[in-house]
Design a protein around this nucleic acid. Structure first.
Lengths: 239, 239
DNA sequence: GATAATTTGTTCGTATGTATC
DNA sequence: CGATACATACGAACAAATTAT
């Protein structure tokens, strides 16, 4: 013990017990031993089989829950979630919340880019069926806008529904979740602007959304799209 | 202490103790009471001031660490991280890892969109200085491609450097982190394709990257950009 | 360099609330 | 309603790492 020269090279990971548990669990998932919807062993079982304390298991599980990978159904067990859950974006939310500087400018620009991207994917993947749904949501929104005294709250809500519908048409879960996140993060500012527009320039709101709607309906994937994508090597990933 | 009748009505949220602690901490951050770089109270102090057990505090802190918001320096204390850390994207990584279905198609499309978006933001925010750096990275990359027997590993590495430089020019932390994530997630597939191209169609690699480079250098924000953004209401957020 | 104090890391034991059968 | 299974929460103790004296 006296020697500072300990040969404990800690062969692989000098990770903590908790992160070891996380690795074990995620590896079991990638290996296919645990699949979405499965119930994982109880905390007690895990702590015994992995030879760690129940508290360490708990911390690991809590982190995975926070990530949106696991779901705890109390008094029932802990299950593996399927699909992408919203919680996976929480870290980004927090990160952006606490970022200083011109973070809002970046957030705004990023959302703008995402919105355009969603629009383009929607144009690519649109179907008659989905367009019918969009039409309904759109008209519902417009109806509120042309009403005598539209409620700001309702307008914001229908606005979100409209954009989420476009994201849904894009047929891309990542796009949907990221869109939802960015929409939520910019809610405060958008509400403010919408309030003003609702009072002084309601027509702008109607017109701009109509343009967006028309773009999805009549948009052709062979317009601007090709110009940009030619630059970016569409088939770089092989097909 | 003997009375089991505690009047803790849990006024608003039936949130767990752990998430209550998380809320307390994050609120203190948004309030500015805790700022990036600050050391937060010790676990013992928190458990006393918040009237919860130290274990609950620990779970909360661990989650915030997993989110990339806090950083633990053992035996020193727990500190608030500054900026956006890569860990914030971990949940997304896990989520995508375990997503089934045509997730790869979605991943591919999403990355394509992001790459285009990064390119467009880069065109918008480019400066002479940054373009000089990009030129260097680009030529470095090409140099490896035209070499007698280019190393696949080196090519992949320089490819990433090239795209990360574009993301850097975009002057948007979100764009950078998301790009990095998507680039990492598609590494396996891209390596495969690149290997084939390196053997049979090296010219394509050179040409396509040259097109991308030229697009940044000569790209004008008043080309395609306006057409798309007009549809999307650029000033919807006010300025 | 050695010791003590501080702070996080880990474990065990126990009690309680809650859902299922 | 009772029994059981499981997560939730607390408290205490000791280990390990870093800093200060």
């Amino acid at each position: 013990m006296s020697a500072g020269m300990e040969y404990t090279l800690k062969p692989i990971g000098q990770q903590s017990v908790v992160w070891n548990v996380i690795d074990q669990l995620t590896q079991a998932m990638t290996m296919g031993k645990l699949r979405p919807g499965d119930k994982i062993p109880t905390e007690t079982e895990l702590s015994e089989s992995l030879q760690v304390s129940r508290n360490s298991v708990r911390e690991a599980v809590k982190i995975l829950v926070a990530y949106g990978i696991l779901e705890i159904r109390r008094a029932e067990g802990t299950f593996i979630r399927s699909g992408v859950s919203q919680q996976m974006l929480n870290p980004l939310i927090y990160g952006i919340m606490f970022t200083q500087g011109d973070s809002y400018r970046q957030l705004k620009e990023f959302r703008q880019m995402i919105e355009i991207a969603a629009l383009r994917l929607a144009i690519r993947h649109k179907t008659e069926e989905k367009l019918a749904e969009l039409k309904q949501v759109f008209e519902d929104f417009i109806q509120e806008l042309v009403a005598e005294s539209p409620s700001l709250e309702v307008v914001m809500q229908k606005d979100m529904a409209f954009h989420m519908e476009i994201a849904a048409i894009s047929d891309n879960v990542l796009m949907q979740e990221v869109s939802r996140l960015l929409f939520t993060l910019t809610t405060a500012k958008r509400t403010e602007v919408t309030k003003r527009l609702l009072e002084h320039d309601r027509h702008y709101l109607i017109e701009s959304h109509t343009r967006t709607y028309e773009a999805v309906v009549h948009g052709d994937s062979r317009t601007c799209e090709d110009q940009l994508e030619a630059v970016i090597r569409p088939d770089y990933y092989g097909d």
